[in-house]
Amino acid sequence: MNTRDTRNTINLNTPLTKEDVLNLKIGDMVFISGRIVTGRDRVHKFLFHERPDKKEIPFDLEGGIIYHCGPIITPSLKGEEVGGGKVIAAGPTTSMRVEMYEADVIKSYGIRGIIGKGGMGDKTLAALKEYGCVYLHTISGAAAYLADRIKGVAGGWKIEEFGEPEAMWLLDVEDFPAMVTMDAHGNSLHREIERLSFERLKEMVK
């Protein structure tokens, strides 16, 4: 399989439909416009254990995209569901830390897309296929570059309780770039690289 030669560029608008997701395959470049939410360690642990009703969450997650990100927003926003503020740095955080929760979050809240870095594990890969969702890798540490694709902060949830990096932020994005590295058909580019590097490792540690 050679994903490099078959790379497509696709514009995605949120919320995503199951059809949008099924059309994507690993190696595709996407540009996302619309609204996405951030969620990382504490948001995932909370959704997994507390299972808040969809109406308790101020943002509609159905068909939504969760971005594994703890942005820097200025000025510091303290109130709940406040708009305003500017995102000055917002790259992805390591997705693997929420591996134990993600499959359940996708299922319970109708999530169609995950943005992060470094890829996720077999449990999430199976959930992507079962429920129709896609994992989008974006550039690690490109925080200023990516922040320029975020046009505004439409709201925030759990800012006081979880702290600014860990709150759920609702962000307006325009042409936010990412690459499909795990699709809804059971394919993972991360696993492909891991498999390749394992073969090379075996040769070097004999």
Binding site: A142, A143, A147
Partner: peptide, 15 residues
């Protein structure tokens, strides 16, 4: 990103 952060005096990484 490195040159953008430097010219706009913004953090290179959000972390």
């Amino acid at each position: 990103n490195i040159s953008l952060a430097r010219t706009t005096s913004r953090p290179i990484c959000q972390d």
